[in-house]
């Protein structure tokens, strides 16, 4: 699967952009947090698309955000 790019996203309508990012994000999160992957992905999709794209390329950033999301979920 080729990486998601800004231009690919820009060609899609706004709601579809989040969908496209979610489809990439979900499997990454599912690998680590199978039970909560749907909720964590839903939370992370509220982040700006530009940052989400960066997170898809940066496992460290993604993990940090996932941990933040988990902390909020458990609060």
């Amino acid at each position: 699967q080729e990486p998601l790019t800004v231009s690919m996203l820009a060609a899609a309508p706004l709601h579809k952009q989040k969908q496209m990012i979610g489809e990439r994000l979900y499997p990454l999160i599912y690998n680590v947090h199978t039970q909560l992957a749907g909720k964590i992905t839903g939370m992370l999709l509220e982040i700006d698309n530009s940052e989400l794209l960066f997170m898809l390329e940066s496992p460290e950033s993604l993990n940090a955000k996932v941990e933040e999301a988990l902390a909020v979920l458990h609060a």
Partner: peptide
């Protein structure tokens, strides 16, 4: 009671509804 439906859950292959009110 007041059910809090947050966060919205993402399901692969299902159209994302979390931001449909924008």
């Amino acid at each position: 009671g007041s059910s809090i439906n947050w966060p919205p859950e993402f399901h692969p292959g299902v159209p994302w509804k979390g931001l449909q009110n924008i």
